[in-house]
Design a binder for these strands. Sequence first.
DNA 1: CATAGTAAGTTCTGTTTTAGAACTCATAAG
DNA 2: CTTATGAGTTCTAAAACAGAACTTACTATG
Lengths: 146, 146
Amino acid sequence: MKWSDLDHDSCPVARAMSVVGDRWTLLILREAFLGTRRFDGFQDRLGITRHLLAERLKKLETLGLMHRVPYQERPLRHEYRLTSAGRAFGPVMLMLVDWATGNLPSDLPPPIRVVSHANGREVDPVVVDRTTGAPLTYETMRLRRT
Amino acid sequence: MKWSDLDHDSCPVARAMSVVGDRWTLLILREAFLGTRRFDGFQDRLGITRHLLAERLKKLETLGLMHRVPYQERPLRHEYRLTSAGRAFGPVMLMLVDWATGNLPSDLPPPIRVVSHANGREVDPVVVDRTTGAPLTYETMRLRRT
DNA sequence: CATAGTAAGTTCTGTTTTAGAACTCATAAG
DNA sequence: CTTATGAGTTCTAAAACAGAACTTACTATG
């Protein structure tokens, strides 16, 4: 399998790898969810090289997760915002944070929290089936080849 | 930031990158969820080089997502199985599949499905808060630095 | 007018990772 | 004694990444 062809593989996991499967992209998305919008903002926060940051932002734009919006003219400057496809990644990020917090322990407290927009309280996420409301875990579901 | 130090970063997203952030690891996990257990099984299915497969399996073992179990002696052979931390990754994988299916479209039908263990029907996953049952999306939650 | 600063990149050079293929080791089977 | 099997390891070459300096188009200050 060629890595560059992953973005049009028929398997959704393989296509997802074109997003989370290279260095920095997921961390850039985290910053975007935290509110960062500008090139230098991402660079300062992450310590990524400018070269790679430019490349990753271009890729996120191509994949349709972020888009460039001009915020001034003379000189023309753009900022990067999440598209609806990018915002739809939120629940994935949330579950990833929840899993990593519980299963890849650290002695340091996490520097981020996920809170409810309604009441400001920390959330306790769980995946359920939309119609039945039953929890979906390894034990209650199966991944199958079709 | 050094990439090799990511596995003991305080941010859970950064730690998660030590799992999903390098090539092949997420695809190896997909195969594990589909039931593959042996070295050559992973190699045949994925087309990954044997060298990298050995390295990735070693890393998944170190991180505690998979463990080696002997399945015969003379000659001694091991297979790789998901640990409980590995199985706990199931909901993340599920949300990732769901997101990629809806937001990274493909003209080919997906070669995998996620079905309910109870009734065999395809599931429609959604993330909710465990206590309130309210759906958690970009609009109803906020990621915050602490 | 000259100099410095800002924001968003691009261009270098050198190191690290990954790809692809061949090879090893222990044992079993024909 | 030759071939097969399963699980790796060892090569070399190609691709990706890191770190730093440079560019472009302005604006602000002395």
